[in-house]
Design a binder for these strands. Structure first.
Lengths: 355, 355
DNA sequence: TAACGCGGGTAACCTAGGTCACATGCTCAA
DNA sequence: TTGAGCATGTGACCTAGGTTACCCGCGTTA
């Protein structure tokens, strides 16, 4: 509520105007002020008193003290989110989605950093400390968000309040989680290539054990199967998840075959690798998408939207996952049952110019 | 503080263990517990009582209630940061720097979104609301952080608590701010090119009125002046701050001259434009840095570190600015005088392979 | 011997607001 | 006339913890 519109005289807000001051100014009891401000259903306060109180609020520039309210009402309206995203901002849109949704619900998001870059690292301490700190703030629920899709271990004290995992899942137990539908994303990517007439499709794979690689590849297989095709294992090449890794993998795949056997499309399991693949393709005098179509995964704006030609890719629904995480948490804290142990969120295709 | 080490039986923490419970369990008064837990200097509590209390704390799994403490002690240990960075995550490392520093100082950072994408837009409302919400939480200080260096207007109520601006400055007044030393960055970039033997340097400029462009260009001029050179206005070409804009600008600059007069180096005022310039250069069969050296600005990791060859660029010190913002705020809230109205933070050169 | 100081500790009040049982005063029906 | 019922509020107690003034018993000192 922006109480000061430009032009109007801004009341000087002396620090620390309390309800008591408002009550005195309006000539009523503090209780009456409380009733009016919290809009109690069954409070019987005359319209006239009500406006007198509201006037006093305006004139004194009263601002409620959220902490005191939280203490007395035993509801903080705060959620805590523990995340390494602040450290490695790849998935920062999770925070954006969560933040926006929380803001809509008039709740505050307390962000606590986690340095737990690797799933079961030795520095679990920091994460524990973050959780502890958030619980000291009496958050009503906890979110854990990871930069990349994986299993994680959550500190034991997280069980004291409703908890939801975003872009990761509980490696040991029963906490609800929100993760991207990697398989669906892999399927839609390959479907798009098939639709464009490609049947010989090369795959530039990530580290084959991470959930992202497993799911995306399986999706690719499904799409091919529907078209009556099979994934040729020879056409699947793994590499480091970087532009260099993508470059090398693409070189291997492109140089392996004579021109007529060469794949006409590459499905790169992330955009960074697609970036490297672009270079390999261009170096060989081939055009995108004329000679070889490329489709990526992740939709890293800075890469996908600025590559030339712009990269068609499958987006990770970070923002949606963040929002859904907060919604799920809201449902849990309101006592509603869990919708599902693991909610999958669609990975939509983003058409640009590389297919 | 992770109180539970694995293996040890975790005490069941019934919700809401208070100091009263601890006191009863230890057979002392609540006051004594408070004294021990807050480590009061002049409290006289025997060592024996002290350990009895600490034991009770452990056994009951007591966790202080931060809100109640804030209320009673009238210090919240919270800072608020209003920022559009969550929306446009370019400068997300400001948040990281601020967050880390706040965490070190054992303070919480409340992040409130601002949609004020343009400096004096019509939707100032949201920003006001964010500030108001933060003040309701009784934050001890406010930070405003922008995604790109510019002048901003801050809601009037921000004057109620110490306030520091990060990556932006107060367009109307006297609030202290932390901004990048654009001029120094421009200077160091051109110095690097001069040092590599380039004397004919093209500049791909941003929108010439924004502080970043003004400062960086001025720095470039200074560096040239020291070497006894002048900036040829014909070699300065402006474009949209995108890869496409950089591509077009580079084309114009490269095609304007016969080979012998062509600049041997390009200073691109941001990395996205450098990305486009790369394409223009490669298209013409020229090599980087062999035929043309390129230096960028911003150090957008995803671009600079993944371009081929990797882009030498000047980094914007986001993380440092965030940390310095919190430090400055801490000094202000502690009653110390402002160090300077505007603190400049160095933009360091990042050597990679394009010069 | 009274006064004083000190170690060890506590009752009581304060922060800012939520909530409930009860107190007015008025109207209306029996 | 009186009691019930309703509209309009209010005093008092609660949340969880910080802080201050003071108490008690014991040893010292003037």
């Amino acid at each position: 509520m922006a109480k000061s519109t430009p032009g109007e005289a801004v009341p000087v807000r002396q620090r620390g105007v309390t309800m008591k001051d408002v009550a005195k100014h309006a000539g009523v009891s503090r209780t009456a002020v409380s009733f009016v401000l919290s809009n109690r259903e069954n409070a019987s306060i005359s319209e006239e008193t009500r406006t007198r109180i509201n006037h006093a609020v305006q004139e004194l520039g009263y601002r409620p003290n959220a902490g005191a309210r939280a203490l007395a009402s035993r509801r903080s309206d705060w959620y805590g989110i523990v995340t390494e995203i602040v450290t490695a901002p790849f998935a920062v849109n999770i925070i954006k989605g969560a933040q926006d949704q929380a803001w809509l619900d008039r709740r505050f998001l307390l962000i606590a950093p986690s340095d737990q870059a690797d799933a079961v690292g030795p520095n679990e301490g920091l994460e524990d400390a973050a959780t502890e700190k958030l619980l000291e703030q009496r958050v009503e629920g906890l979110l854990y968000a990871a930069t990349f899709h994986r299993g994680v271990h959550v500190p034991a004290s997280a069980n004291e309040v409703p908890t939801v995992l975003i872009n990761c899942f509980d490696a040991d137990g029963k906490l609800p989680s929100i993760v991207p539908d990697e398989r669906g994303g892999g399927r839609i990517a390959v479907e798009r290539l098939l639709q464009a007439g490609h049947t010989r499709i090369g795959v530039i794979n990530l580290d084959p054990v991470i959930p992202a690689a497993v799911g995306r590849l399986e999706g690719a297989r499904e799409a091919l199967a529907v078209a009556g095709l099979e994934l040729d294992p020879e056409l699947v090449v793994s590499g480091y998840a970087t532009a260099d890794g993508g470059y090398e993998a693409a070189c291997r795949i492109l140089d392996r075959y004579p021109q007529q056997d060469r794949p006409t499309a590459l499905f790169c399991l992330n955009d960074r690798m697609a970036m490297g693949a672009y270079d390999a393709i261009k170096e060989r005098g081939l055009t995108i998408p004329g000679d070889i179509a490329v489709i990526g995964f992740d939709n890293q704006e800075l890469i996908a939207a600025y590559l030339r030609p712009k990269l068609t890719t499958v987006a990770l629904p970070f923002e949606k996952m963040g929002a859904l995480g907060v919604q799920t948490l809201a449902a849990l804290t309101a006592g509603q049952p869990i919708i599902a142990d693991q909610q999958l969120v669609d990975c939509p295709l983003l058409e640009r110019s590389s297919v």
